[in-house]
Every structure is written in C-alpha cells, then in structure tokens.
Design a protein around this nucleic acid. Structure first.
Lengths: 236, 236
DNA sequence: ACCTGAACACCGTTCAAGT
DNA sequence: ACCTGAACACCGTTCAAGT
C-alpha cells in the first residue's frame, strides 16, 4: 500500500488507542488526485488539499515531508493500472506499443497528469514495475541489455514529451486565444512555407494519431537495429 | 527584436522625452535567463528578478502581462542560436540529427531550460523558424506533408522529454540521496530482474549517448517508412 | 511614460500547544 | 499520536500616486 519512499509517519500505532487518525497517505493521495482533476496542478495547494480533507495544512506534513513528496506519491499512483491486465500479444513490438499506450492513457487519466509525472521521480513499485516490464519485453526479444534499457528510456521520454504537449494543448481555451489560433495567425503573418503547408496536421487534435505515428517510428527503428549484440556507438 | 506575441508596452515613445526607461523586454529576458542559471526555475520569482534589475516587482508588468508571458519570451530566447550556423550535410538524416542535437543543446544551455520550454508555447520566430526548418528538411527529402509534420512533432517531443529527464537528473545532488542511489536501493530491495541487469546503463550519466540512441531509432524508423505518399493509418 | 509604495489574496513549511 | 493555531518568510498581481 505504501507509495514512493519510506513514509515518515506510516508505521501503524502499536496498540490502536485513541481516536483513529483523520488522515493517511493513501486517502490523501486519492483526494489530491481528485482535486487535481477538478482544479488543475496550479490550484493544487497544500491548503486547498487540507481543506478538502477537513484538516489544517500543517497536518499534511505528518504524512508527506514536502509537497514534492506528495506529488511523487501521486505520480506513482497514476501508473497503478498499467500492468493490471496481461499483455495481449506475444509479439514484442505489439507488447511495446501496448505498454506505451497504457502509459499515455495513465498520464491522460488525470488533468495535468503528465506535468505531475514529469516533475517527480518515483521509485515506487508501479513506476519501477513498468520500467522492468518494458525492458523485459525487449530482453526477451533478444535485444542486448544496453539497447533494451536505452530503447525503454527513449520510449518513456517520447511518451512523456508527447503527453505533456497533448495535455497542454487540450486545456487553456479559457482565457486568451487557444494555441492553434495563435499558431495560425503567426504562420500567416510571417514566412513559414513548410508550417503553412502542414498547418492542418500541426493544429489537428487527433493526438492519438500523432502518438501512434511516433511510436511506430521508434518501433520500426528498433526493428531495423534488430535484436542481437549491443549496437555500435555513434561512430559508423 | 520583439519576442513572443505583441508586447504591451513595447511601442517606443513618439518623442524621446523624459529619462530613458530602466527596463525593456530584451534586457529583462537576458537578466531573467542569467538568474535562471544562477538560482533555478523555482527561485526565479518576479520579485527576485525585479531586485536584480534594481526595480520594484510591479514595474515588470509594464513589459510582461504575466509571469507566464515572461517565461514564454525566455523559452523563445533559448532557441535563438539553433539556426545560426548552416546545416553542414546535404543528407536529410544528418540534417535532422543536427537539428535535434541543437535543440537539446539549446535547452541544456541554461539551468532548467527544458522545464521552461515545456511550460510555454512560444509562437516567436525562433520557435517557428526551427519547426519550419525541421519540416522543410523532411519535405525536401520527399516525405509527404503529413508525415513530415508528424515526424517533426515526434522529434521535438522526444528531445523535450529526454532533456527534461537529463536536466532533472543532472541537479538535485544537494539535499537527499541522488536519483541513481535511490534507484539502486529500490532495485536491490525488490525483485526487478531486468532493472537489475541494466542498472549500469540506467544510472549512466552519458546522456549524450542515450540521446543519440533514441535519435537513431527515430531516424531509422523514418528511413524504414521511407519518403513517398502519406503513410497509412494504424490499420495495417 | 515609467516607476514606486502599498496593498490584496494567497503560498509552503514549522512548531509549540492542545487533546 | 495526531491535529490545531498561529506564525514566518515568502509569492503573483494590481493600482493609485508620484515624477
């Protein structure tokens, strides 16, 4: 049940004396994720979270030493469902794609999920289990350990970068002109011939297609490299 | 000289009467980037920046409507040098790799540069010029417009995701145990066979090699797809 | 036109004191 | 053991008033 690193006040009372605590780590993370969904990361403050849990802000610090530690536990919780179902296909490239899609879905499942994840470095079981599975798929496909690890990092970094942009584009819309509109204006104002031609794709909101394209590129590149001994350096 | 969108107070005084302003957009961005390098993004506050410019915080709001607008101008400035030198090779894959390396170098050039860039969406000339050039390289290699645009997005998102992680790993080191150490402990404590085997690569600080690997994957994937009409959907 | 002074409505975090 | 109350040292942003 425990999240990221060893929780400071998580050891249960030796004897269950006194009234039960109003707070605990798991419930705090749950409420924090709900508040994240409602209000967004910028509005997720320790005070607002405390209010949502009917407690004063200071009380949260018995369970999380810093706000960053809470965010790390939230990031860890985001990946909770990634390995629930078994991977459907025996083909390594389909397994890889499936894992990447699940990670994207996990980050998308909450507002600003990608930003939360990008800002933290959990070493919890969901995060490490996901990475282990990813590398395992590649190793079982006979990729050399170094290549498997680097390919996994690439996949995760691409997924993170993509989802960060996807979620950033998804919202806004409240105040100023939305992103695509500003891009359209800027492109027509100055001379960007290639942006002008590709504007429909660049402003498309079919992020699933964008993601699938990039993912295919990576997997095709991996297929081209092919399983076997470690790839040579950048030399030749 | 102007950055991102139309600057509010940027129109020069009709007649140069009165003492010259202590502030202007360009110099503010310069000082902000210097402060970023010294103190990091979390310590880059409007008050601290104002202090560095010998002015009260409120004065900054004549040049930037919000802190986010200042950060956008900073992100735009980060990419300033990406297109200064001409691309050395006529080969499209080498041109692409060169551009990606330049973007990474630009983000790395300042502390938390990737975080600044990830948090904003500039439509300034450096950002758009870079994207236009990227897509141009692919179009000139006879990739279909849609593929060229999507490949460019993939390249940028991977570079952003990678550099975000690289810069996050680079620092810390001040307070708690560094990232690699926590990872090592977590991996040995629980059962992550594939992480255990690849720990040396995963904790390696040769981020240039990691980046080159991912970049090669993308470019090889692009070569496999090959120039020509737009690639088919995810169908088969 | 450009900046100051001062305020408004917040933050994350700490810690004695209560129960 | 767990939480409150109250404070500390800050934030971004606004705006009348000065020059």
């Amino acid at each position: 049940m425990s999240s990221a690193s060893t929780p400071p006040g998580a050891r249960a009372a030796a004897t269950t004396r006194g009234r039960p605590p109003k707070l605990d780590q798991a419930r705090t993370v749950e409420v924090a994720l709900a508040l994240l969904d409602e209000a967004g990361l910028d509005a997720l403050t320790m005070r607002r979270l405390a209010e949502a849990m009917d407690v004063r802000a200071g009380a949260l610090y018995r369970y999380f030493a810093t706000k960053h530690e809470l965010l790390t536990a939230m990031a860890e919780a985001l990946l909770a469902d990634c390995l629930e179902r078994p991977l459907p296909s025996p083909d390594w490239s389909e397994r890889l794609a499936e894992l990447a899609h699940r990670m994207r879905a996990a980050l998308l499942s909450r507002r600003d999920g990608a930003r939360v994840y990008a800002g933290t470095h959990s070493t919890g079981r969901h995060t490490l289990g996901f990475a282990d599975t990813l590398i395992g798929v590649l190793r079982e496909a006979d990729f050399a350990p170094d290549d498997a690890a680097r390919a996994a990092l690439t996949l995760v970094n691409f997924t993170l970068g993509h989802t960060l942009e996807e979620q950033a584009a998804l919202q806004v819309a409240g105040d100023g002109p939305a992103d695509p509109e500003r891009l359209r204006d800027a492109v027509t104002a100055a001379q960007y011939p290639h942006l002008a031609v590709t504007l429909p794709v660049l402003t498309s909101t079919d992020f699933t297609a964008h993601f699938a394209f990039g993912l295919r590129l990576l997997i095709d590149g991996l297929r081209a490299a092919g399983p076997g001994p470690a790839a040579p350096g950048t030399g030749g």
